[in-house]
Design a binder for these strands. Structure first.
Length: 288
DNA sequence: GCCCAGGCGTCCC
DNA sequence: GGGACGCATGGG
């Protein structure tokens, strides 16, 4: 299946944008993506996107996943020309789209994300999938797994081999490097099973944030990530250490108001996050 | 070995 | 409501 791209789209930048944790770069430049209990491999060459799936799968799954109906160039074009810092960030981050990911998976992965580096998040999420998720196929001798359902997460045995009580220090098969987040993930699973997806979708942003923050382990930042990357609330603006650094560099204390870019502040957040991380890397490389 | 990571809950004021 | 502190674990 081949798609001719007519809008901002950059696989490499999206893979490195910190919104998804199950994209794996392949030696040939492609990315293997697992989402919605399916695996697909994607390659990009300029305006040509190739997916190793039938056209029906693109139409029913991946087109929506990549948010193909939204015009990101137009959103980028609305950035204040006088905002030099954001202009630069957006030109660095051009091609990033806000993926429409599964809300449950997004909730869990961003609970896991706290106090972890992005590579550590990836490996933790993969462990969780391998231990609790359904096998969905074998590629080059390597088994692939779906993201586990809430029930599958609750079925995880997080107890120590000899102990009775649930301990997150357990080296047991179910610990998955979750550490102190294990009870948070379980709480998220219980919460999720009690929700109606249609009801959550119908909530306004403030009500959805309140609902998400009922889960122990979900604070303002994780809630914002789940809203932006899982519920596609394009105005959510997660502020993490990188965005904080970007805002301090570019605007000083309190000098940036996300409301200025409503209803798409979240896209600006992605540009700022991506650009600031790239700058950090360049500094590191120079220092060597 | 050491440092720190896409924070959060809790305690305390 | 805001600031200090502890937190399990692994990647660089």
């Amino acid at each position: 299946m081949q798609i001719t791209l007519t809008d901002d789209f950059d696989l490499e930048k999206m893979a490195d944008s910190g919104q998804c944790f199950r994209w794996r770069p392949l030696p040939d430049g492609g990315y293997r993506i697992i989402a919605f209990r399916r695996a697909v491999t994607a390659w990009q060459e300029g305006h040509r996107l190739t997916l190793d799936c039938p056209a029906e799968a693109y139409q029913s799954i991946w087109r929506r996943y990549f948010d193909m109906a939204t015009n990101y160039a137009a959103i980028r074009g609305r950035i204040d020309p006088g905002d030099a810092y954001l202009q630069t960030a957006a030109s660095l981050g051009r091609g990033i789209r806000i993926l429409r990911q599964d809300p449950w998976e997004t909730l869990v992965t961003f609970i896991i994300s706290q106090r972890k580096s992005i590579p550590a998040i990836r490996s933790c999420v993969e462990k969780l999938c391998a231990v609790a998720g359904d096998p969905i196929g074998v590629v080059a001798g390597e088994p692939l797994y779906a993201f586990p359902s809430p029930a599958q997460v609750l079925a995880l045995d997080c107890r120590k081999a000899g102990g009775g009580r649930c301990s997150f220090q357990a080296a047991g098969a179910g610990s998955c490097s979750l550490g102190y987040r294990m009870p948070y993930v379980r709480a998220a699973a219980q919460w999720m099973m009690a929700q109606d997806a249609a009801v959550l979708d119908a909530l306004d942003d403030a009500a959805l944030e309140t609902a998400l923050m009922q889960v122990k382990g979900v604070g303002v930042k994780v809630a914002a990530c789940v809203m932006l990357f899982g519920f596609h609330r394009m105005n959510a603006f997660p502020v993490d250490v990188w965005v904080k650094r970007a805002l301090t560099d570019g605007y000083g204390e309190g000098g940036f108001d996300p409301a200025r870019y409503a209803p798409c502040a979240g896209v600006m957040q992605q540009y700022l996050f991506y650009a600031r991380r790239q700058m950090g890397r360049e500094k590191k490389a120079k220092g060597r």
